[in-house]
Nucleic acid binder design. Structure first.
Length: 739
DNA sequence: AGCAACGTTTTTTTT
DNA sequence: AAACGTTGCT
């Protein structure tokens, strides 16, 4: 049952203001999710709004799931009728039903970032564009254009007198053609095409306006222009639109997030009610003070003062270590200490960093201390080669319009169909205006390719068609099973019998479980539904609260989360804030980094420890690092740390990072200041374990040492892992830890 | 066609 | 440092 007594005055006002546009400016930890869930509950239980008429947009699927559960807890019924999802998922649902009205097929596939990248790569080749033009740049330009709802034609018009701009425009056009031919939409299209649909098909729009009479948007500060357009259209009729955001937490500008969406809201929706939530319930006073010290350096922000009635709490820790290894060791031993003495559970602790690359060394040290952990993001599960291969197979079985998918797997595992053949097929397909797969079935083409090659191609197409034959009766898991067996994918990996192949097989197994999972949750779901579901999964979505593990992730991934204890590492200029931004010398970019720092600090509830390294290896080069300017913006902790480190200054460097700007200087500096042997991993002269000892391996877990051979350069160790069998590995590489 | 060896580049963040 | 692309060899 809903209880308004538990809310503060402003929160209650926000919950009960249900008629007309509402903008909630909610600081970090001010209970905004609580407000949204209570508001939905209030609408349903007090104002008799049908759950079916309520929509809520969240930033991740995980947040959506949590919100559903919370609403369900309060209301007790009907929560499954509310549409709570991300922008992308919501648009996907709409498009699956209606996109045929604007000239697409409803069974379109979704291109993720990697797919788009390969598409652009092909386009660069095909159009013979300037080699200087990186696919990344083209991609981000196209994405930005799409976010701003600029079509390829318009893009060309705006950039006609610029050679580079023209080339990008042509790539954009070709990319659009390619997507269309492949029956594919990219992430941006999901939004864009929905808006297009709404604009062109008034009936459809009206239908959805009638359905979603009450709309909520969480993390509003990170919406982009198309997303705002989507909301504007949907809310145009009833104007019951409630958005919640915090301009200080806008950290996705690089993805098109547009802060003017907050500033403009009141202009677009007349008579908007604005409510501010400024009381923070999450963090201690010390943590909040530090966060405020940092963020107050930003010029472009709505004035607000976040406050708390909480105690000061623990003081903020800041620790400077010699290098990234010592930094990681420090964090690991601290975690070991505070979990052993019972102050925290593993799941209470998060380790946040600016870049994914930082996770590796921390992982290593946690492993050494036997601390259970989970890394969020990084090499996304769904980006791994074996998973992408399986997905490409499933796409091909589902419908073979997606040339990219077909090309990806036509020779995986090796079937003797090489690049020459593939490009012959492709150009034939291009000429005839048919799909790659259809070209593979074309008699005339096969004849011209010669008997040997065409036999191989026939074998491939036969196999795909055979699997496809059962598509409608088979369960998703059955199709999956057929794909990995009949294509020979599984057996090839099994024969390989290496550590890597083993881990690939495990990943495929995990993916299989997800397929089964999907099957159980979505009885009506077909293969395309599964595939689009998979495309929209974010890293954070797979994190479960019941795992008692330390979480490692980027600050971006940590958005919206909170932890009793936070470690924020790599607090160094040129890492955080990143070198790219410092080089740009752009105050607005720096402010975004500062907001990121603000987000990081405000994740902490009870305690935060920030760390930095004096020297660090970045892209293979070692640099001397300087304490992050964000730390320097918190006088209380910076002064303490610098006076402490003064007394123990054991390094006599003539330079530090900030003084080194040219390659030459850096090389000279490296020769002077570093003895390489300090940083190379020494070949192990003796092992810490022997035959019969129990050891732990990063991937395989626990095993018993069966044999050790001295191969001269290195030891070759044979270990029998529990449930995984015997593996041979090199000692210096395997990093086995004695238990 | 397939592979090893070499040279080159690099995202910072992600639905 | 690691991943990627190209080249030249078999």
């Amino acid at each position: 049952m809903i209880n308004l007594e538990t809310l503060n005055e402003n929160q209650r006002e926000a919950v009960c203001y249900t008629n007309g546009p509402l903008l909630i400016l909610a600081g970090a930890g001010s209970g905004k999710t609580r407000v949204v869930t209570h508001r939905i509950a209030y609408l349903i239980s007090r104002e008799n709004v049908k759950p079916y008429n309520v929509m809520a947009i969240t930033f991740t699927n995980k947040a959506a799931e949590e919100m559903k559960n919370r609403v369900n807890d309060i209301v007790g019924f009907g929560a499954d009728q509310i549409l709570i999802s991300t922008f992308h998922s919501a648009c996907l649902r709409i498009l699956r039903q209606h996109i045929d009205k604007i000239g697409y097929k409803n069974d379109f596939v979704i291109y993720d970032t990697d797919d788009s990248k390969s598409a652009i790569k092909l386009i660069i080749k095909k159009l013979e564009l300037d080699k200087k033009l990186k696919e990344r740049e083209i991609m981000s330009k196209i994405s930005k254009a799409k976010n701003d709802m600029i079509s390829a034609d318009e893009y060309l018009k705006y950039n006609e007198d610029d050679l580079r701009g023209r080339q990008i425009a042509h790539a954009y056009m070709e990319y659009e053609r390619m997507l269309k031919n492949n029956n594919a939409l990219d992430f941006d299209d999901l939004l864009l095409k929905t808006v297009e649909l709404f604009k062109r098909e008034k009936e459809v729009l009206l239908n959805y306006q009638e359905r979603f009479k009450y709309i909520h948007v969480d993390e509003y500060q990170d919406t982009n222009k198309v997303q705002f357009e989507f909301i504007k259209l949907l809310a145009a009729k009833y104007q019951n639109i409630c958005v919640v955001g915090d301009d200080d937490q806008s950290i996705y500008k690089f993805r098109g997030a547009d802060i003017t969406n907050i500033l403009n809201f009141e202009n677009v929706f007349k008579n908007t009610k604005v409510i501010k939530l400024e009381q923070n319930y999450r963090s201690t006073k010390n943590i909040l003070d530090a966060a405020n010290e940092v963020i107050k350096n930003n010029q472009e922000r709505k004035s607000k003062k976040l406050w708390t009635s909480k105690e000061e709490g623990e003081s903020i820790e800041y620790k400077i270590l010699d290098d990234e290894y010592k930094e990681a060791s420090y964090i690991a031993t601290e975690i070991a200490r505070m979990t052993e003495d019972g102050s925290y559970n593993y799941r209470d602790i998060a380790c946040l960093y600016r870049t994914n690359a930082q996770s590796r060394i921390i992982e290593e040290k946690l492993l050494l201390e036997n601390i259970p952990y989970k890394i969020v993001g990084g090499q996304n599960f769904y980006q791994r080669k074996e998973i992408k291969d399986i997905i490409a197979y499933l796409k091909t079985v589902d419908n073979a319009y997606d040339d990219l998918a077909v090309r990806r797997i036509i020779n995986v595992p090796k079937r003797g169909i090489g690049l020459t053949t593939i490009s012959k097929i492709q150009s034939y397909a291009d000429q005839g205006g048919i799909s790659f797969f259809d070209a593979c079935l074309d008699e005339r083409l096969l004849l011209s390719l010669g008997e040997r090659t065409s036999k191989k191609i026939n074998a491939f197409t036969y196999m795909i068609r055979k699997i496809r034959a059962g598509k409608d009766e088979d369960k998703i898991s059955d199709i999956f099973e057929k794909v990995i067996t009949e294509t020979g994918y599984e057996s090839e990996l099994k024969e390989e019998d290496t550590i890597e192949a083993q881990s690939r097989l495990e990943n495929i197994g995990e993916f299989f479980n997800k397929a089964v999972d999907f099957e159980e949750k979505n009885e009506k779901g077909n293969l395309s539904d599964f595939l689009s579901d998979v495309a929209l999964i974010a890293d954070i979505d797979n994190v479960s609260e019941d795992d008692n593990k330390v979480l490692l992730m980027t600050i971006h991934s940590a958005k919206g989360l909170e932890f009793p204890k936070v470690f924020l590492c790599g607090m160094e200029d040129n890492l955080f804030p990143s070198k790219m931004i410092l080089d740009m010398n752009d105050e607005r970019e720096l402010e975004e980094e500062r907001r990121l720092c603000y987000v990081a600090i405000t994740r902490a509830m009870q305690s935060i420890t920030m760390t930095s390294a004096r020297r660090r290896m970045l892209r293979g080069d070692i640099y001397l690092m300087k304490t992050s300017r964000f730390i320097r913006e918190i006088p209380s902790i910076y002064e303490k740390a610098s006076s402490a480190s003064q007394s123990r200054k054991s390094y006599d460097y003539k330079n530090d990072f900030s003084g080194i700007t040219t390659e030459k200087q850096r090389d000279a500096f490296k020769r002077k200041a570093f003895n390489p042997s300090d940083y190379k991993v020494e070949k192990l002269s003796a092992l810490s374990y022997g035959i019969g000892d129990k050891v732990k391996h990063i991937k395989f877990g626990i095993g018993t040492v069966k044999d050790i051979k001295d191969g001269g350069r290195d030891f070759e160790v044979t270990v029998d892992f529990e449930g995984k069998g015997e593996k041979k590995m090199f000692a210096s590489f395997a990093k086995l830890v004695k238990l």
